[in-house]
Design a protein around this nucleic acid. Structure first.
Lengths: 354, 354
DNA sequence: GCTAGGGTTGCATGCGTATGCAAGAAGCCC
DNA sequence: GGGCTTCTTGCATACGCATGCAACCCTAGC
């Protein structure tokens, strides 16, 4: 037994005693059709269990109402949150989400080709690099591409990010204000713009203010790699007394290693600052001081921008930056001044002179 | 400027000097076509940047090679892991994943309708219920439906689950063997089969072995709700000295509350056991004793089963149960005997008599 | 040289829907 | 009542590809 044939618009038309066009119009908001006819069609459709075939519809309209979404690093709780918000946001605008998860490290291209075969209306790349060749290819085909939480070299691809560089600067300032002098930086993926920008802000502020560059290790945004990096960093004779971790996920790994393998107390022996403000990092056990990347605003910006790009593919590329705050919790020594309350949350807001 | 028209098979055919059918055959493995022709077509396709249009292809073949996937509760780290594995598994078999995330609690139906409009080849529902009406509708349309980590009332819908009831029994046995007598159970969602089955096993074993029923609270599988439930449970005068939490995600919430709000030490003052063996629960800070639901085997079974169902829609429904183990870590008092090493991991393997 | 047969190829059509166009219906005004 | 506008409706066609069928080519076999 092969699967039963689904009812088509023609079937419905026959039952309702109208033409197939009428059925199509009955399901097209704003189409020219008499109310009475629409009801007759609706009734017939109900009887037959008819649903318009999105595939056929897409073929004629040349708009799939599907958006390809690439995501990886789901171990970092930031991304599941993003996926969830993105799903709702796109659904609300009538888009479906074709999800693919490129193997971290390997090229996403073959899988991307499969997704492109579906003539997606747009592509959202969360946490994935794609070859610039492929980006151009999409651009040429007029497929809007949007980088989420990542930027590309050229100005060619639109993006939505947090304040990576500013966050890095504020964190440097915050730690120094807390009296720390032996700083460490735990980098994420070397080729990621987020890690680069955060480091740039962090190291940049230190350099500008006459501090030595921080010790540096690479954690690849992964728990295990970050744990290993933490071991190297904490085993040094000149062990840092404060570490800026490229994201919260790595920061929790560092906290685990510091406490359970080195017997350090946080923040007495070691101050930790993260980035993202997500997931377990907020739990009392970690109470991580972290620069926030608010998921909902970032996703809202993404959905709005992507819809705009679909409607006007010729629009210039844009780079949305969503504002964050350095949320002060308990994982890092608190500076004597500079923290202010924002609602129930303490944030770092140093008073600037001139 | 509207988006540029993508090259079609006809364009390629013209350039290659063949018919459109030939182009189609060139891209269809196993089709009858001369090697030389195929190469000529391939070259023309390359020049034009042609990719077969999956939408048109699906319309004629009547197979979309898309599988609808519903997921929710992504805060529970189990599900991101599942998504990741599922994505790879389906990709490897040439399927794309149309993801949608029903609002937790509410019915998935309206969104599901949108997904059905895409004539998905199958539907995988992870942690979501669908109305029986809709189930019938899918059944009638011959669309295979697979429940992941959940079962339905009747035997009508196939499923892949862990050993929920057996896990519950083993945990009861384990805690009692550890000397606990004041037990608590933290339920997940009341209407979820996982929570019901785990409780059934847990309470069932206790009853059969002459123990009073456990104290009971509901945590809805959510962090906040579980925290609140933990507060109620731990504030009681007859506070339990061991709690079986319906999953690891809730167990971490309980651990946080117990430690930071009640000053309890784990496992000295309170034993905790979870379910799933995922995410932060494995970290040293929690070191959660937990009954495992191994993601990869569960996903492998799911992918295999769903492919089978697609190839043979008339096949009888099946209920795959993937074996788990009670992994013994540090969050619960260890019984004097009954734990054995399995590789590097301690597991609960009581010797049964007769 | 002729035929059989296998391998290729193109033609024509169908998949299910959307939509431009023209025809028809209904109402309006003078 | 005629001419006009405003709504509805059906017809025909297009979207891009897959595929049954028939025509064709070429080689092998006799």
């Amino acid at each position: 037994m092969s699967r039963k044939r689904q009812a088509t618009a023609t079937d419905v038309a026959r039952l309702a005693g109208v033409s197939q066009s009428a059925v199509s119009r009955a399901f097209t908001p704003g189409a020219s059709i008499a109310e009475e006819t629409r009801e007759r069609v609706a009734e017939a459709a109900r009887q037959l269990g008819y649903r318009p075939n999105a595939i056929a519809r897409s073929l004629t309209t040349r708009r799939s109402r599907i958006i390809g979404v690439a995501a990886s690093y789901l171990q970092n709780h930031f991304y599941p949150d993003v996926l969830e918000a993105l799903s709702r946001g796109l659904q609300a605008r009538g888009y479906q989400m074709l999800l693919f998860m490129p193997d971290a490290g390997r090229h996403a291209d073959p899988q991307l080709q499969e997704v492109l075969a579906w003539r997606v209306d747009a592509l959202i790349l969360a946490s994935t690099t794609l070859s610039s060749e492929l980006a151009d290819q999409c651009q040429a085909a007029g497929i809007p591409v949007l980088l989420f939480n990542r930027t590309s070299r050229g100005p060619s691809v639109s993006s939505v990010t947090g304040e990576n560089e500013r966050g890095g600067r504020l964190i440097a300032e915050f730690l120094v204000a807390g009296g720390h002098r032996r700083l460490g930086f735990l980098a994420g993926l070397e080729n990621s713009s987020t890690s680069r920008d955060r480091e740039k802000g962090f190291a940049g502020w230190l350099a500008e203010n006459g501090h030595p560059p921080p010790l540096r290790e690479v954690g690849l945004y992964q728990f295990e790699a970050a744990s290993a990096a933490a071991r190297r960093l904490l085993a040094r004779p000149d062990r840092p007394d404060a570490i800026f971790c490229g994201n919260d996920h790595m920061a929790t790994a560092v906290a685990e290693v510091a406490r359970h393998e080195f017997g350090l107390r946080i923040p007495r022996d070691l101050s930790l600052v993260g980035f993202d403000d997500t997931g377990p990092a907020r739990w009392p056990s970690f109470s991580l001081t972290s620069f926030s990347q608010p998921v909902q605003p970032m996703v809202d910006a993404t959905v709005a921008l992507v819809c705009e790009m679909i409607e006007n593919p010729a629009a210039p590329t844009r780079h949305e930056v969503v504002r964050g705050e350095l949320l002060v919790r308990g994982s890092a020594r608190m500076p004597p001044e500079g923290c202010v309350s924002l609602g129930e949350q303490l944030v770092w807001r140093p008073v600037r002179d001139g």
